[in-house]
Computed example of a mutant assay.
Amino acid sequence: MPLTGTTNTAANTALRYLNANSAQAGSSLAKLSSGSRIVKASDDAASLAVGTKIRADVSALRQAAVNTAQASSLLQVADGGLAKIADILLRMKSLAVQAQSGSITDSERNFLDLEYQELISEVGDISGQTKFNGAQLLNGASGKSIDLSAATDSLFNPDSTHANGIAARLSGNAAVGTWQLAYDYTAGSSLGQFTLSNGTISDTVQFTHASNAVVHEGRISFEHAGLELALSNFDFSTTFAAGTQSQLEVAGGETLSFQVGVASGDTITINIDDVRPASLGLTGTSVGTTGSSVTAGDALDAAISELNAARANMGAMMSRFEFAAANLATSVENLDAARSTLLDVDMAAEMTRFTSLQILTQAGVSMLAQANQMPQNLLRLLQ
Rank of each mutant, 00 (worst) to 15 (best):
K53M: 12
D113R: 06
F234L: 14
V123D: 02
Q206W: 00
A60L: 15
N21A: 11
A241L: 14
A174K: 07
S28G: 13
N8H: 10
A49M: 14
H224D: 15
I270P: 04
N233L: 05
T178E: 05
D184N: 15
H162Y: 03
I220E: 01
L342E: 06
I88S: 03
N21D: 14
T130P: 05
A230T: 08
S73I: 03
M347E: 05
Q24Y: 06
V262F: 11
G288C: 04
R62M: 10
D79K: 05
T341P: 05
G284Q: 03
G26W: 06
L89P: 09
S202V: 09
E322M: 14
S121I: 13
P158V: 04
S145F: 04
G218W: 04
A150Y: 01
T289S: 14
G265E: 09
G80E: 06
D336Q: 13
S94R: 00
T355Q: 14
M1Q: 14
A310M: 04
I304Y: 03
G265N: 09
G265W: 13
T341N: 15
L229E: 04
D87K: 06
D106Y: 05
N212E: 11
N21L: 03
M318L: 12
G243Q: 08
Q136R: 15
L32H: 01
D79H: 04
S103A: 14
K31F: 00
A299P: 07
D301Y: 01
A11Y: 00
G261A: 05
H224S: 15
T161P: 15
L48S: 11
A163K: 00
T9L: 15
A329H: 06
F194N: 06
K131V: 12
G35T: 00
E249G: 01
T195F: 09
A69L: 12
S305E: 09
A60E: 13
